[in-house]
Design a protein around this nucleic acid. Structure first.
Length: 635
DNA sequence: GAGTTTGAAACT
DNA sequence: CAGTTTCAAACTC
């Protein structure tokens, strides 16, 4: 009789019990907003897993910008899907989560912007770094971890990532958690370094076929690069930045100054240097040196293996110079638009990516541009080319060598000690290497402190001194400039040129050299830049064949349309391109890919056809632009 | 290859 | 900020 109805009471009593229980209180304390935040943030992080591998070798500055931009864009892209998540059932929560994630992204951007501009030198870094929560400092770290293991090889790392994602979303991290994180990351650090050593062993046993090892090493590189940041967490971020700089630069410079050590290391116990690392001391400098020692071999060998595409016999026969150049180029090739100033990119011809077939094939042949610009061939490959002295092939090779020289910047500084922006290497954030013909060069790892200090000084004068001179719309930075210049140009020189006598038709002009048109920011006189003019409606974006056009312009500038700045520019927008006249297969690509480029060409042709009736050159320009469109890429 | 020209960077 | 100098690359012969 008095027996209570369990079907009614139990839930109530249980509920009552649960309500009283700490677990329920904890669950109850978790508001949907918090959940949404976590979810949102998680999405942001997971989205970052699709970061391009090109970020493996980032310029310490550009990469930060890129990553931050990327994260924001990715986040925005994914936001709608998140808001549609049925579990949340609360769009406001989701949007709030999105907004909070936006705030996080903004924080991150701000933080990275500070790093990039080396705020410490301006006395603002401490404030900003202090003000930023762990969210801001851990976000980039986690980002790097995430993108460094796209295949999810590092379970522990992923676990930490998940934890961090949740923690970043809304929780302050306790000191204990920080300690635990430090321990975990140290474990990861050691684990990755062991993996590096294993890669080395595998590579040594397999000769030069390091292709398979490349991805692993690439993972290691990014991972350890991020570890450098981890190790400097809470310290002056400048240290982290310079550490990364040092790390990357050491990779580039290593063969020059440590070639003997490298050989010794390769012939000796491969794990010897890495074992030092396993002491686990997360101090930055030892990590850098060890990582540099461990990773460089992998990078170079793997890179060689990649390029050789099975031609293992060339691997150990390449001269030291060749190895040096490869290492130097490696950074460029793996980091298009990152380590290399964008104003150097136009020097890569024919729509090639920096990791161009041409470059690689040329290197496959063992060709190495020497100091005089001529090519040298390694003994291993010389015979293969011996019969190829016919002029077309020779010309092609010579052309490719020019490309390589363009990609692998070398300087010839005599008085600046390569410590000023006059020096292309220094300006690009790179150490000088053997092919440089500089004198009294201080831009070497052995003078790292001098280099970094000089760099800091220059950045204190001009925070953007080391950013790419040419900004493309995809960088995002251009957006603000667009507002200033009121021009739809897709790429633009950061500051604009100041040409007086070259009419912006020679490489003296930075805009012309970069293959971009002059904009309102330019102060040039008598501008005849064939890539565009200040009114911005006429600019054609660079592609490989535009380089030829550019080179033609340099020698045959009179054949091009010449509209100087002072002249009234024809309103080309009226002359809308007749896309239907294009080959059908090209139309979609046209509009999608190089809308500006093709449009410009069409506009140019249109005016030319009406003006000078040079339809042949017009067609070639069109074809040039069309050839520049990757076949396998769709927007 | 030497000399000149050019414009960015650095300096005042 | 403007003018000058320095510098190294681009260019010419």
């Amino acid at each position: 009789m008095d027996t209570p109805d369990k079907t009614h009471i139990t839930p109530t009593s249980n509920l009552s019990k649960f309500e009283d229980s700490p677990v329920f209180k904890y669950i109850d304390s978790l508001s949907p907003i918090e959940l949404a935040k976590s979810k949102q943030t998680d999405n942001v992080f997971s989205s970052l897993a699709f970061l391009s591998p090109s970020s493996l070798f980032p310029s310490p500055q550009i990469s930060f910008l890129r990553e931050s931009r990327f994260s924001v864009k990715r986040h925005n892209f994914l936001s709608p899907s998140t808001s549609k998540t049925p579990q949340s059932g609360n769009e406001s929560n989701a949007s709030e989560g999105a907004s909070k994630a936006d705030e996080q992204s903004d924080l991150y951007d701000e933080h990275l912007g500070c790093l990039k501009n080396d705020c410490s030198s301006k006395g603002t870094s401490s404030n900003l770094v202090t003000d930023l929560s762990d969210l801001a400092t851990e976000f980039p770290r986690t980002l790097k971890y995430d993108c460094s293991s796209p295949d999810g090889n590092f379970e522990l790392r992923d676990e930490i990532l998940r934890n961090k994602s949740l923690e970043v979303a809304g929780e302050e991290r306790s000191p204990f958690q920080r300690i635990r994180d430090g321990w975990e990351m140290r474990q990861l650090h050691e684990r990755d370094l062991r993996k590096i050593c294993r890669v080395k062993q595998i590579e040594e046993s397999a000769g030069c076929s390091g292709v398979a090892a490349l991805s692993g090493v690439a993972d290691m590189l990014t991972m350890n690069s991020s570890i450098i940041h981890e190790n400097t967490d809470g310290q002056d971020q400048r240290t982290a930045d310079s550490g990364t700089t040092s790390f990357i630069s050491t990779i580039m410079q290593f063969p020059l100054d440590n070639a003997n050590n490298l050989r010794n290391a390769e012939s000796g116990d491969p794990s010897g240097s890495c074992k030092q690392n396993e002491s686990g001391d997360p101090v930055t400098d030892p990590t850098q040196s060890i990582l540099s020692t461990c990773l460089l071999d992998k990078l170079v060998v793997s890179d060689s293996g990649l390029k050789k595409d099975g031609k293992d016999e060339n691997c150990n026969q390449s001269g030291n110079q060749q190895v040096n150049i490869r290492r130097r180029c490696l950074v460029f090739e793996k980091s298009p638009g990152f380590g290399l100033h964008l104003n150097s990119l136009p020097n890569i011809t024919k729509g090639q990516s920096p990791l161009s077939k041409s470059t690689l094939s040329s290197m496959d042949r063992g060709e190495v541009p020497d100091d005089t610009g001529n090519s040298s061939e390694t003994p291993a490959t010389f015979g293969a080319n011996e019969s190829d002295h016919n002029s077309p092939e020779k010309k092609r090779q010579k052309f490719k060598l020019v490309e390589e020289r363009a990609v692998c910047k070398r300087c010839n500084c005599k008085r600046s000690k390569c410590l000023k922006l006059y020096c292309d290497c220094f300006a690009a954030g790179l150490y000088c290497i053997e092919p440089c013909a500089c004198q009294d060069c201080f831009n070497k790892p052995i003078h790292e402190n001098v280099v970094l200090e000089t760099r800091r000084q220059i950045e204190s004068r001009n925070p953007l001194a080391f950013t790419p001179k040419v900004i493309r719309s995809t960088d995002g930075v251009l957006d603000s400039l667009d507002e200033i210049n009121k021009t739809p140009a897709s790429a633009r020189h950061k500051r604009g040129c100041n040409c007086k006598r070259s009419s912006c038709l020679k490489k003296y002009c930075e805009c012309f050299q970069a293959g971009v048109g002059c904009s309102l920011g330019c102060r040039c006189e008598g501008c005849k830049n064939s890539f565009g003019w200040k009114d911005g409606g006429y600019e054609s974006e660079y592609n490989g064949d535009n380089l030829e056009a550019r080179d033609r312009n340099a020698s045959d500038k009179k054949s091009d349309i010449v509209i100087s700045k002072g002249q009234e520019h024809p309103n080309l927008s009226v002359l809308s391109p007749d896309i239907s006249r294009l080959p059908f297969a090209h139309r979609g690509k046209l509009a999608a890919f190089f809308p500006h480029s093709v449009k410009s060409s069409l506009q140019l042709c249109f005016t030319q056809e009406h003006g000078s009736s040079d339809s042949l050159s017009c067609q070639s320009r069109l074809d040039s632009n069309l050839h520049g469109i990757p076949e396998n890429e769709t927007p």
